[in-house]
């Protein structure tokens, strides 16, 4: 409505005969997209909300099958109270893991991305173009293929991670190669005893850091190049050290670019289906399962469509909250524009 008020409107007395078409014209542009989305996006979304209150299952799947029974909030309650009949399923642990997974990744991506961008942007660095060209690779190789490759790389016997570690360990520390049969994916006990994270979390983290930092480097590089050189000049004259220049000039001026990129990273990582589903498969014992992989299992393996629908409604609500929080952080930093 505010948009309408802002638009320059013609004086009211001059009524064109075509004005009704002028008012309707924008809607003609919207018809194709909203017709398609109405059928294949919005109607399914509403239908899904209805499904979430039923026991929709395999028996209701045939097109002439009877309607499923209304079960009220049973699906919603069962999900939160861990009564889905899935072994090792714990909603609250999973939600906590999902959030920890998201923030631990994005923090490392952003820190490493900025660090490398700062090095790459230093005056007089050799082979800049070579590094720039090479570091783009993790962005351009399809993520799902990378997940599959890492899955095999983390294999205890034939994977390149253990084989590489064995070579490095022998070369630098004279360690026996037999030490490096690490079961990255399926070891159940926690490597750091006070942290409830399995080794597969660290494997996922390694793979996702490999995937994620170049994007942040590119965003940070773009922002670095737009910082005026005179600022550093002035700081040097005033006697600021290199690290003072970094903390007082570089970092604050990177913020307007890094905050939206981090928000994007947070939403992406929160729903990182491909990597987790293919690399660890949520294992061992569902320890690295996130919300979206569980939703997929409910549909694909359990065939509990009603429960899955309720689960997806929860995902929607959680994402909405996450987006609202991150958006308000973005808005809070918007005024920072120097």
């Amino acid at each position: 409505m505010t948009a309408l008020a802002q638009s320059p409107t013609a004086p009211k007395k001059v009524v064109h005969r075509r004005s009704i078409w002028r008012v309707l014209n924008p809607y003609f542009y919207l018809i194709p997209a909203f017709l398609v989305m109405g059928v294949i996006t919005y109607y399914p979304m509403l239908y899904q909300v209805w499904m979430s209150f039923t026991d929709y299952g395999l028996k209701n799947l045939r097109f002439d099958a009877p309607l499923p029974n209304y079960v009220g909030f049973a699906n919603y309650i069962n999900i939160l109270t861990n009564q889905l009949g899935l072994s090792y399923y714990d909603f609250w642990r999973m939600l906590g893991f999902n959030l920890f997974w998201t923030f631990s990744n994005v923090i490392i991506h952003v820190a490493l991305g900025i660090f490398i961008a700062v090095i790459l942007n230093r005056q007089g660095l050799w082979f800049k173009g070579f590094y720039r060209a090479l570091y783009i690779l993790p962005i351009v190789v399809p993520q799902i293929i990378v997940a599959n490759i890492f899955r095999n790389m983390f294999d205890p016997d034939y994977g390149a991670i253990n084989q590489g570690l064995a070579i490095l360990g022998k070369f630098f520390f004279g360690l026996s190669p037999d030490l490096f049969h690490i079961h990255w994916i399926d070891q159940v006990n926690y490597p750091v005893s006070w942290l409830p994270l399995t080794l597969s979390y660290y494997a996922l983290l390694i793979a996702n850091v490999w995937l994620g930092w170049p994007f942040m480097t590119i965003v940070a590089s773009g922002a670095l190049q737009s910082i005026p050189k005179d600022l550093y000049e002035a700081a040097r004259i005033d006697g600021a050290s290199e690290s003072q220049q970094f903390w007082r000039i570089t970092l604050p001026l990177l913020r307007p670019a890094m905050v939206p990129a981090s928000v994007y990273g947070i939403v992406m990582t929160f729903n990182l289906f491909n990597l987790i589903y293919f690399l660890s498969g949520g294992g061992p014992l569902r320890q690295t399962e996130i919300l979206i992989t569980t939703a997929y299992r409910l549909i694909n393996e359990q065939r509990l469509y009603g429960v899955a629908a309720a689960f997806c409604v929860y995902i929607f609500i959680i994402l909405l909250i996450l987006t609202l929080i991150t958006n308000s952080i973005t808005r809070a930093t918007e005024s920072y524009d120097a």
Binding site: M1, T2, A3, L4, Q6, S7, V23, N25, P26, Y27, Y29, L30, F34, M37, I40, T41, Y42, P44, M45, Y47, Q48, M51, Y56, N60, L61, V267, N271, F273, I292, A295, Y296, L298, I299, Y305, A308, A309, C312, I315, F316, L319, L320, T323
Partner: peptide
């Protein structure tokens, strides 16, 4: 273009954008 309901419809598009595609699969499948 400026038209009534622009904000609402844009939010409608953004809402779907925020949602991962797997989150509408139960209904689409059925």
């Amino acid at each position: 273009l400026r038209f009534a309901g622009r904000q609402t419809l844009m939010i409608a598009v953004l809402t779907v954008l925020m949602l991962p595609s797997i989150a509408t699969l139960p209904a689409l499948f059925v």
